[in-house]
Design a protein around this nucleic acid. Structure first.
Lengths: 144, 144
DNA sequence: CCTTGACTTAAAGTTCACTTCAACTTGTGA
DNA sequence: TCACAAGTTGAAGTGAACTTTAAGTCAAGG
């Protein structure tokens, strides 16, 4: 039982089989096929899925994750050092996200009493941080 | 010039006319119509848009914003106290988001050296915070 | 051998928050 | 008055990350 079926991989990773197939279509994971055309995964694929899932939590898109995975050596199973290298860059990214939310929170604190929300005067709704405004849509989806 | 056209409202709020029309379809904003069927907005609508935009930055969906706006008195223009009341609840939400990212960052710090990312052993890829796992997709979209 | 659950594919559907399009109508400054 | 920018509508398109569906094929236990 050294290889895993897609169902086993899904159970162990907590990622749906449909998502795993989707990742495979996008080239994020690979498998060998049985004579009957079924997918079989080696155990290191579990770590790869863990990497993908965690990178998503950090806020990377699948495209970015794809790029990161592309820098892994293709001639051997990635080592811990390989994974460590890839995830090292996440720290500044997380820091930036946290800083941005903290700015929002602090501004909220100073505005909450007045309820002004003036688009021109209040920095809450008119933040300095214009760079962060590119691209609409929700900035953060929490527990809901 | 006490009323604004949709273009003027867009200019002043920084929100595209298409988005404003979309909000109106969803009932988030309202307008009166000229005899020629064009929209005209009263100035308080600017604050309403500011509220919507800021609520989005905090991470609320349009549906949640809709619900919040529904609690405003319909018989009068909302006061600063009204807006203040609505935005008061954002603080815990922001706090939770920040805390979640900080947990992720701290766990990342303790995992980055080892590169383990084990789905079963490493808390980075296997967070306690299971509630936060509902709903896939990017958790945070920063500057990019 | 045979049932049954797990697997296969391509294609279409989902959600969110909009944007774009086409075809048309209004409003305004010269 | 008339050109033309700005407004109107419904419907379709966008992008990200999947999920669902349909119509099958495969693998393993009894």
């Amino acid at each position: 039982m050294t290889e895993l079926t897609i169902g086993e991989l899904a159970d162990r990773s907590g990622i749906a089989t449909s998502a795993i197939r989707y990742y495979e279509d996008r080239g994020l994971v690979t498998s060998r096929r049985t004579t009957g055309n079924q997918r079989r995964y080696e155990r290191p694929m579990l770590r790869r899925l863990a990497f993908i899932r965690t990178a998503q939590r950090v806020g990377l898109s699948l495209e970015e994750i794809e790029d990161a995975l592309a820098t892994l050596p293709s001639n051997r199973t990635p080592t811990k050092a390989d994974w460590s290298r890839l995830s090292r860059g996440w720290r500044p990214r997380l820091d930036a996200q946290i800083a941005q939310l903290e700015r929002l929170r602090d501004t909220l604190d100073s505005c909450i009493g007045c309820g002004c929300l003036s688009l021109r005067r209040c920095s809450l709704s008119n933040p300095d941080d214009v760079a962060a405004e590119r691209g609409p849509g929700p900035v953060f989806l929490e527990g809901r």
